[in-house]
Simulated scan of single mutants.
Amino acid sequence: MTRRPEDKPSRALRGRAGRMKGGRGSGRASTGAVRLWGRHAVEAALLNPERNHRKLWATQEGVASLDGDLPANFPVEYASAADLGRLVARDAPHQGLVLDCDALEDVSLEEVMDADPARPIVVLDSVTDPHNVGAIMRSAAAFGAAAVVTQDRHAPPESGTLAKSASGALESVPWVRVVNLARALEELAEAGYWRIGLAGHAKSTLAEALPTGPVVLVLGAEGEGMRHNITQHCDAVARLPISSAIESLNVSNAAAIALYAIATRN
């Protein structure tokens, strides 16, 4: 299916405390709850007024590293670094901070399509590694993307690992999770977005395929790439002009380069 193209938040840390629920090691405290770790991920979550915070586990040094003050009566339990290590995934770099909080509320595709059309939307097809999804969110934040869209059945859940890789971007980049990715791409097309899928075999480079209007960047899983049905829902397929010395790029690296190209297009 083809078409033709035509400041930083306040540093006062916020908190809405609730009752903590259990769970260890996986990064998910329980259904509807998530456990985050690491300074950037935890601090961004504390600054996010949309987060319902349950409890902060921390070392004295971890709290001191936060760029702001915790609210009075915020539930903090001080512990050693070794004790905090038992609350998170094995060998996770918690940096003296582990936060139990509610998962973020869902964002609808309609909300995203009402955003600034000059900002690209990133669609991920079957990218299931939370490190990659988190890194892509970080690049999406860096280059002003409006949102990241994934399919529920073919993407990782919100987790501490993903949040750590996103380095705070999980709190600022809307994450839209849809049931049917092909239908979502159809809706984006109807809203005036030009859908470009990245594929190493494409004849055109990304620079050649980029239009001047709203763009959706579609990326598939490493190795398999985009599924056939998703490719059929792209208006163009393009490649990054990498050297023949290497077969392909990690999907998060490819996303960063493509988002930079979109941000700097003429």
Rank of each mutant, 00 (worst) to 15 (best):
S172T: 15
S204E: 10
A184V: 06
R3K: 06
L109A: 12
A79I: 11
G192R: 04
R24S: 09
L87A: 12
L185R: 03
R16F: 06
L217D: 01
A189Q: 08
L217R: 07
I136V: 11
Y78H: 15
W37A: 05
I246T: 13
V149G: 03
A209Y: 00
E77L: 12
N48A: 13
E158S: 14
V122G: 04
D152S: 14
L198H: 11
Y78T: 13
L217I: 08
R3P: 00
A236D: 00
R227T: 07
T2S: 02
S244W: 03
D7N: 08
S167M: 13
D69V: 09
T2L: 01
R153V: 07
Y193G: 00
L240R: 01
L124K: 06
S65E: 11
R51W: 01
A29G: 07
S10G: 15
D129A: 15
V34W: 05
A12L: 13
G160K: 07
N180V: 12
D7F: 09
S159V: 08
E43K: 01
P214F: 01
T231A: 15
A261G: 05
A256G: 15
A263F: 04
A166V: 05
A163M: 06
L249F: 06
M226I: 02
A236P: 00
Q151T: 07
N132G: 06
L206Y: 01
E247C: 01
E158Q: 15
G134P: 08
G18Q: 11
I121Y: 05
I196C: 01
T128I: 12
L87G: 03
R28A: 14
P49K: 07
P214E: 00
D152P: 00
N180A: 14
A145D: 06
H94V: 05
G213R: 03
L84V: 09
A189M: 03
V88Q: 02
H40M: 02
G85V: 07
S204D: 08
V127A: 11
A41R: 03
T205V: 03
V122A: 03
V173D: 04
R195K: 14
V237M: 12
L84C: 09
G15E: 06
V173A: 08
T59G: 11
K55A: 10
R54Q: 12
D83R: 15
V218I: 12
D114R: 15
V42I: 08
G225M: 07
I246V: 14
V148C: 08
D125V: 12
